[in-house]
Every structure is written in structure tokens, then in C-alpha cells.
Design a protein around this nucleic acid. Structure first.
Length: 330
DNA sequence: AATCTGGGCAACCGCTATGCT
DNA sequence: GAGCATAGCGGTTGCCCAGAT
């Protein structure tokens, strides 16, 4: 027998929220909080809504200090930086942008930012075709969509800086890391080198107590009234502050700025001061993923259900020097 | 003016993680 | 440890609207 539904689907209203519903929900939560039980909340206040729907409405729309639209360039860069590093972990990305919701960022990325970054330089298509053999390899097939997308972004970035590099028959041109020199500590090929500092220090620094690869839990509404601590994210018990945006991100904002170059600069082959180092390509976990696929598959956390790899999880493993791999693999 | 098309965004769905008994 | 309820997350859907035809 399957699990009982969280609500009576037949008697639950769907679709857009009315101002009256918003007012009811907002007033109740502001006065009494969620009571730690979203499922029971709609009944308490006489809303014919699913508890999950109430939670989503509160988190994404009614919660105080929510910002909608009008993303700044600084926010663009942070989103790009984190997406390239950790992929579509929207809740984590949102944690670094106070007032922004994961849904908002996800929509913004899917509808605007991604196109902004990937849609440039259509004339580069023929060059990319020259690498078709590499892209069609079994190795590439085993990579997650997210990793491929991030790799595509990085390759594009590479092509901007070294236009001839994509003519190379090798799929492993030298990919300079997307970091400034300050964040690279001892070049130990750890995730600390490419995960923004807050993550490296507070999220990756400790192995999970249960030996499982980390999962993150958004704690924004876990307080009793759902109002306090609107920006703290838990990762296996370690909290990171969301009050401190990644201004000191390990990934140089100037590097991300390269994504946002205007077409004229591209045409002129100009760059704006990113990708100065030529030492390695370990700056991005999408490449780490590729290497792992061919050589170190055992290090990977393979989600056999979905068939996808999780590059953030890998970043966790590789980024934790003291982490016991054997323990993880047991 | 009517219809079509695509973008933007709110909301929903399904799955996994977590906590409790 | 098992089973269940709930929370949370990310992907997807579908509606609305503006611009194009």
C-alpha cells in the first residue's frame, strides 16, 4: 500500500493564489507561525490548499524581504559562479543571495542567464563541430547534463580567451582555472580551489557523520514561527550564514565577468582580465567529473536511480582531505 | 483586429531526506 | 531497524501576456 497523500486532492484548490488567500496565510503565519506543520496549516486557517502549496507560497512570495526580478550584475556573477561550481543546487545558490528564492533564481537562470551565456557567438558553432568526435564519445555520454552544460560554458569561456584552442584535436586543451590566485591554496586539487570559500570552509570541511554524501536542507522556515533565520542553510548539520554573500568567493568575480563580455569585445578578441593562470584545469568539477569517469569512477557517487552523477557530491569527496574514501565506499 | 508564438514566472509534481514513533 | 509522516528540493508544467505576423 502506498503512502497516504499529504492532502485530499479532490478538495484542494489549485492554481494562482487570490489576494484573500495570501492575506489569510500571511496573517496567520506572522501571528502564529507555521507550528512546524505545513500539512495541518491550511485546515487551521480555512484554506482549501495543500500544505505544500502553502509552504511554497509563503517561501516564494509572502515571506518578508523577498526580492523579485531586477537581478544585479553582481547577482548574475554570483549565480554563474556557483552554477558552474556546483550545478543546479538552487537552494544553495539562493542561500548566497539574501532575499532571493531558489525558484526565482532557477527561473532567472533558465529563462535569461543561461541564454545570455550560452546564446553568444553563434559563429562559434563550426569550431565546436570540429570537436564533435570528442563530444560523441562514450565518456561524454556518461556525464550528467548539468556537467556537460557547465563544461560547455567553460569551453566557451576558454574559446573566448584562446580562440584557437578549440581547433585542437584533443578534448583536453589546457583549461585555465576560473579563480584568482588568492583562493588557490597549495594547489592540492581540492574542492576548496573551486568552491566558493563559504562552501569550502563550512560545507566541505567536514565529512558527513553518517558517511553519506552530503545533502542540504534549507532551514529557512524551520524556526517555530517561520520568520527567523530566513537565510541559513544547513548542510549535514553545518550551518552557513546567508547574510554574507560570496563577495569573497574563491572564484574571481572578474573571471565570471568574462561570461558577460559584450559582443563587440568578443569580436575584437578582447578579454577582461580573467583566466590568467595556465597551470591546470582543476578549477571546475565538471572536468573533474570527466576525469573521474575515465579513471576514478570509484570515487563517484552514482545515483543509479536517475543515472546521473552528482558533481557537488564529488566536490565534497575530493575536497575533503581527511575524508576516508574507503569509509565512503563501504 | 485576430491569431500565433515565445518568454517569463508561479505553481505543481515526484522524489529524496529527515525526523519521529 | 522499520515504517510512516512531513519537509525540502529540483524539474516540469501551464497560464498569462506582450510582441510579431
Amino acid at each position: 500500500m502506498g503512502r497516504a497523500p499529504c492532502c485530499d486532492k479532490a478538495n484542494v484548490k489549485k492554481g494562482p493564489w487570490s489576494p484573500e488567500e495570501d492575506a489569510k496565510l500571511k496573517a496567520f503565519i506572522e501571528q502564529q507561525g507555521t507550528g512546524g506543520n505545513w500539512i495541518a496549516l491550511p485546515q487551521k486557517i480555512g484554506l482549501k490548499r495543500c500544505g505544500k502549496s502553502c509552504r511554497l507560497r509563503w517561501l516564494n512570495y509572502l515571506r518578508p524581504n523577498i526580492k523579485h526580478g531586477g537581478f544585479s550584475e553582481e547577482e548574475d556573477r554570483i549565480i554563474c559562479s556557483l552554477y558552474i561550481s556546483i550545478g543546479s543546487r538552487w537552494s544553495i545558490i539562493a542561500a548566497q543571495l539574501p532575499g532571493r528564492t531558489d525558484n526565482d533564481i532557477k527561473n532567472y537562470w533558465n529563462t535569461k542567464l543561461k541564454k545570455k551565456l550560452l546564446g553568444r557567438r553563434k559563429e562559434q558553432n563550426s569550431r565546436r563541430d570540429s570537436n564533435a568526435d570528442a563530444r560523441n564519445s562514450p565518456l561524454m555520454d556518461s556525464l550528467s547534463t548539468s556537467a556537460l552544460e557547465r563544461m560547455q560554458l567553460h569551453i566557451q569561456l576558454q574559446s573566448l580567451h584562446h580562440p584557437l584552442s578549440l581547433l585542437s584535436p584533443s578534448i583536453w586543451p589546457r583549461f585555465p582555472p576560473l579563480f584568482d590566485g588568492n583562493s588557490i591554496e597549495n594547489n592540492k586539487n581540492t574542492a576548496r580551489n573551486f568552491i566558493p570559500n563559504d562552501f569550502a570552509g563550512n560545507l566541505i570541511g567536514k565529512p558527513p557523520s553518517n558517511g553519506k554524501i552530503g545533502t542540504e536542507t534549507d532551514e529557512r522556515e524551520n524556526s517555530t514561527n517561520g520568520l527567523s533565520s530566513p537565510h541559513s542553510t544547513r548542510f549535514n548539520g553545518d550551518f552557513i550564514s546567508q547574510e554574507k554573500p560570496v563577495a569573497n568567493s574563491g572564484m574571481s568575480l572578474e573571471a565570471i565577468d568574462g561570461f558577460l563580455m559584450e559582443e563587440g569585445e568578443l569580436q575584437n578578441g578582447e578579454t577582461r582580465g580573467f583566466l590568467e593562470r595556465e597551470t591546470d584545469r582543476d578549477g571546475l568539477d565538471c572536468f573533474r567529473e570527466m576525469e573521474s569517469t575515465s579513471e576514478n569512477l570509484a570515487l563517484w557517487v552514482n545515483d543509479s536511480e536517475s543515472g546521473s552523477f552528482n558533481s557537488w557530491d564529488t566536490a565534497y569527496i575530493l575536497g575533503t582531505e581527511e575524508y576516508d574514501l574507503e569509509h565512503h565506499l563501504q
